[in-house]
Structures are given as structure tokens and as C-alpha cells.
């Protein structure tokens, strides 16, 4: 009954390998009650994100309705259904960073990267998000790229920061 999605047109050789890896994970967790979230975590780690085809593959292998799998994925903000960039930029929009110009950083970054909040750049390099307080209020306004915090950023510094990536 389950359908191997690895013969779909969007999959490359590389994908097949990832699907195999995910299939192994599923086998490991299959019979454990309530293991869907675990499997999704691993799958996202392996594949990068959880597109519809992968959701179908997981739903089919677990014999669960697709709507249930996607229900869980869309409920938790950690899961992403769209490809994520190589790096994630998070502009802090906590109170301190906001009043010291966080919003301007967001606007400028949208111009530079040509993306809206929550989107990924065309070259797949950056995913652009906002963050709640990252606990660096003394360094406001701060941005994070992956796990590096940049302090007291202003709009003029942005391009040189991005050029490091």
C-alpha cells in the first residue's frame, strides 16, 4: 500500500539516499506509540525540510493519514515545509532591539535579500526570520546568523556582515 516516493520526478540520486536513511529511521520507530514527532525531527534533520512528497512517504510508511502527519508538522513551528537556506538570519525583535532599530534592520534586510519575512533567498543561502528576545539586550540591536550573534548592528553594517557568508 505504501508508495515509494523516490520515483517521483523531484527526487535526485541524492534524495534517494536521504529517503533510504529516513526509511531506516522509520523502521526503528515504527512500532512505538507516539513516535511521529521523533521521526519528523530526524527526517527534517536529514532532508532539511519536510515537503509534501516526504510527508507522503512518511504517512505511507507509518500507515497514518497524510492529514494527520501534515497536521503535526504545521502545528509545531520547528518544522518547516519549505526548503530552508544554508544559513538562518534572525533579527531580534525583543523590546530593547526593537526600540533601538530592529525594525529598520528588518526593512533593510528585506531589500538586500529580496525576500519577505519567513522566506528563503533565491540562491538558497539565507532564510530570513525574526526572533523574540535572544537575551542580548545590552548589545541591542542584535541579529543572529545561525548561532553567531552580531551586536549593535545598524543598517550600514548589514552588507559587510552578510558578505562573510
Amino acid at each position: 500500500m505504501s508508495v515509494k516516493s523516490n520515483n517521483c520526478s523531484c527526487c535526485t540520486q541524492d534524495d534517494t539516499q536521504k529517503y533510504d536513511e529516513i526509511a531506516n529511521i522509520i523502521d526503528l520507530y515504527k512500532d512505538k506509540e507516539g513516535s511521529l514527532i521523533q521521526i519528523l525531527h530526524h527526517a527534517q534533520e536529514i532532508y532539511g525540510h519536510l515537503p509534501l512528497d516526504l510527508q507522503r512517504f512518511i504517512a505511507g510508511s507509518l500507515n497514518k493519514p497524510l492529514s494527520e502527519v501534515s497536521g503535526v508538522i504545521t502545528f509545531y513551528s520547528f518544522f518547516s515545509t519549505k526548503p530552508r537556506g544554508k544559513h538562518t538570519i534572525r533579527v531580534c525583535m525583543g523590546t530593547a532591539c526593537y526600540v533601538r532599530g530592529g525594525k529598520k534592520l528588518v526593512e533593510r534586510l528585506q531589500d538586500i535579500l529580496e525576500v519577505q519575512l519567513g522566506e528563503t533567498t533565491k540562491d538558497g543561502k539565507f532564510t530570513f526570520e525574526i526572533a523574540r528576545c535572544i537575551g542580548a539586550c545590552g548589545l541591542a540591536p542584535a541579529i543572529m546568523i545561525d548561532d553567531v550573534v552580531y551586536k549593535q548592528v545598524n543598517v550600514n553594517k548589514l552588507e559587510s556582515i552578510l558578505s562573510k557568508y
Binding site: 509534501l52 510527508q55 493519514p65 492529514s67 494527520e68 502527519v69 501534515s70 504545521t74 502545528f75
Partner: peptide, 25 residues
């Protein structure tokens, strides 16, 4: 859809105000 018919086509998607009862994605 899920328990009586076992088809599981409709389920809650998203979260909070965005919750919608819908097929996947």
C-alpha cells in the same frame, strides 16, 4: 472522517488562530 470512516482526509492543520480543518497542506 478519522474514527468512524477511518479515511483520515480531514484533520486540524496549523495552530492557534490559523487552525483550519482541511486535507493535508
Amino acid at each position: 472522517c478519522n474514527e468512524i470512516q477511518g479515511t483520515g482526509v480531514l484533520n486540524a492543520q496549523n495552530r492557534g488562530f490559523d487552525t483550519v480543518i482541511s486535507p493535508a497542506m
